Simulated assay, not measured.
Amino acid sequence: MWDFREGELFEIWEPAEQRLPFVFNSPHSGRTYPRCFVENSRLDQFAIRRSEDHFVDELFGCGVDLGAPMLTARFPRAYVDVNREPYELDPKMFDGRLPPYANTGSVRVAGGLGTIPRIVAENMEIYRHRLPVDEALSRIEMIYKPYHNALRKLIARTHTRFERAILIDCHSMPGNIRLSGSGIRPDFIIGDRYGTSASGELSRLALRLLEDQGFSVVRNKPYAGGFITEHYGRPARGLHALQIEINRALYIDEATLKKKPEFALIAKMLRRFFEDFTSEATSSACDLSLAAE
């Protein structure tokens, strides 16, 4: 059943010296697909990749050069989604009884996007048949929990050293995303759980700097942040968490999942953004004491 080797689940990219109170996290950029998983899927090897955050680890990896660690998943989101509660599980997917503490009634489970997803993008069913309950619980124990343990340690280390920590949760979104009622296609979405996971000043700073580069940027709609942003963001304790979604149409051909010629330019612009963002966010002029709005 187990197709991952030790050390293959995720990587921690460390700077030569951590100079910033930032931690970068890319939980959905994994592209190592277990053989048994692919064989038991009704999707081909292209379709099953539709829910990946393609190349997000590369685009946001500039944070390491600037002096912050980055945690990157190697397992795919379609296999186990660490941006969910640990036991958001759909009982209709499994043979056997789920533990009583499983959250079987969440909106995400109903939509097929629980901790063990039922679908990838565009409502494409992943599995040919039900899975054993033990399979789901094994993925949670052997992938989900070690991943969050690693993330928790990075955040705690950063908070201890700098007396605050700013988590940047890095994601991508489909190119066909439009704001309801407006038809606007955002280039970026800044998610702070409606002002509860990070200082409002931090969110406004991110919006302003991206807009200054000519990007279309919105806040919290339609993505306000998932479990990671909600769980680790505690502004009153100096723990801030921002989710940043980049539109895939900016940098990949979504029909082929290959990089566009513009990829290098977008990466350069993101680096400039993070240079300015980390500098201003850590300056004495930036007041991160505002816990919520």
Rank of each mutant, 00 (worst) to 15 (best):
E11A: 11
R248H: 10
R97S: 02
G114H: 13
A136M: 00
F188D: 09
R193V: 10
A68P: 01
N25A: 07
V120M: 09
Y33L: 01
G238F: 15
R31C: 06
R97C: 00
R130T: 02
F24M: 07
P186Q: 15
H148P: 03
Y33M: 01
E122L: 04
A292V: 14
A102M: 07
A150N: 08
D192T: 13
N83D: 12
F24A: 05
R35M: 05
C36S: 11
M173D: 14
E88A: 13
L113K: 07
I143T: 08
I126L: 07
M70W: 01
H159C: 08
I143H: 02
A156D: 13
R161N: 08
N40R: 08
A198M: 06
I143V: 12
F10D: 08
T160L: 11
G63S: 10
R219T: 09
G226N: 14
V109N: 11
L290H: 10
Y79H: 06
D134R: 04
S279M: 03
I266Y: 00
A224L: 01
Y251D: 04
S279Y: 04
H231V: 02
I228P: 00
T158M: 07
Q213C: 05
G7L: 14
K260A: 11
T72N: 10
R271M: 01
S289T: 09
G233A: 15
E52T: 02
L290G: 10
R208D: 01
L154D: 04
E201W: 01
Y79I: 03
R271E: 04
Y87P: 00
R193D: 14
Q18W: 01
L151W: 14
K268F: 03
E163D: 14
G111I: 12
M269N: 05
G225T: 12
N83F: 02
F94K: 02
L131Y: 07
D53N: 14
T72C: 13
P21I: 15
R208E: 02
P174T: 15
R161K: 11
E85S: 08
R237K: 14
M93P: 00
E6D: 14
G191E: 10
P222F: 00
E17P: 00
E254G: 06
